[in-house]
């Protein structure tokens, strides 16, 4: 029953599987991205209050959502690596960081640009914006800490602990719009309630969220493959792979 778990822990197995599924996931990602963009930019209506700036939502919400999801994955993978000393878990955790940092920066930037026409300001120091900025610093801290060690094992451990400590920020970001008075609006999508949005806007948003998730998986798999090769350079299968690729 636990076989798949141990297989997943084998870098060689992961490398082979990632290489096989990536092209298919890429095709799916490109199609959904295109569909989401066409629906969001051309077919969805403008908002009765915000006008066409509402179209920023179709990239702002997915980016913000990914920034938090990737952080949780990074921390959970780091924890698995710490507890079970699993090599693959640390590779996943480390490969998540730069993608998550990018999505956090994109969420902050698109939010700021959206804020100007709707709130009249690029930035306010309110709970949602500030906690998201702290998330960016957590990602950057994780990356800086990991690159500060020469020894990869020590680097993996230290950065995994940092990721775990920083997880406390995720619920703060999520509930910030409820706990404090803020300019930022509340959650648009909720698993428990009926969406407060018209389907003509809901569909492009949901499609874009799935497309961004696929983008993350595809990019992560590319990064993981590069990282596996470097870390497993003494393994015979990597030596063979490198020798074969030259011909």
């Amino acid at each position: 029953m636990w076989n798949w778990f141990f297989q997943l822990a084998s870098p060689k197995w992961f490398y082979t599987i990632a290489r096989k599924v990536t092209p298919w996931l890429s095709v799916l990602m490109y199609s959904l991205m295109l569909a989401g963009l066409v629906l969001g930019l051309i077919f969805s209506p403008a908002d009765y209050q915000q006008g066409n700036t509402v179209r920023i939502m179709y990239i702002h919400i997915p980016a913000a959502y990914m920034s938090m999801m990737i952080y949780v994955i990074m921390a959970v993978a780091g924890a698995i690596g710490l507890v079970w000393r699993m090599k693959m878990a640390h590779i996943v955790s480390v490969s998540c960081a730069s993608i998550g940092a990018m999505f956090t920066a994109l969420a902050l930037l698109t939010g700021a640009i959206w804020g100007k026409p709707t709130w009249g300001t690029y930035w306010v120091w309110d709970a949602r914006l500030t906690s998201e900025l702290i998330l960016l610093f957590l990602y950057l801290g994780f990356m800086a800490l990991h690159s500060a060690y020469d020894d990869k094992k020590a680097a993996d451990k230290a950065s995994a602990v940092l990721a775990l400590v920083g997880v406390v920020n995720i619920p703060i970001i999520h509930f910030s719009v409820e706990w404090w008075n803020t300019l930022h609006q509340g959650a648009t999508l909720s698993k428990l309630e009926k969406p407060s949005m018209d389907t003509s806007m809901l569909w492009p948003l949901l499609i874009m969220i799935v497309a961004f998730k696929l983008y993350f998986v595809v990019t992560l798999f590319h990064k993981i493959r590069g990282e596996i090769l470097l870390r497993e350079k003494q393994a015979s299968w990597v030596k063979k792979l490198v020798a074969d690729s030259k011909q």
């Binding site: 993608i99 590069g226 090769l229």
Partner: peptide, 17 residues
Amino acid sequence: QFVLAKLSAKKNIKLLS
């Protein structure tokens, strides 16, 4: 980000050889 990730496996194969 995507292009950098995609190139990383190729770049590392060259580095390792």
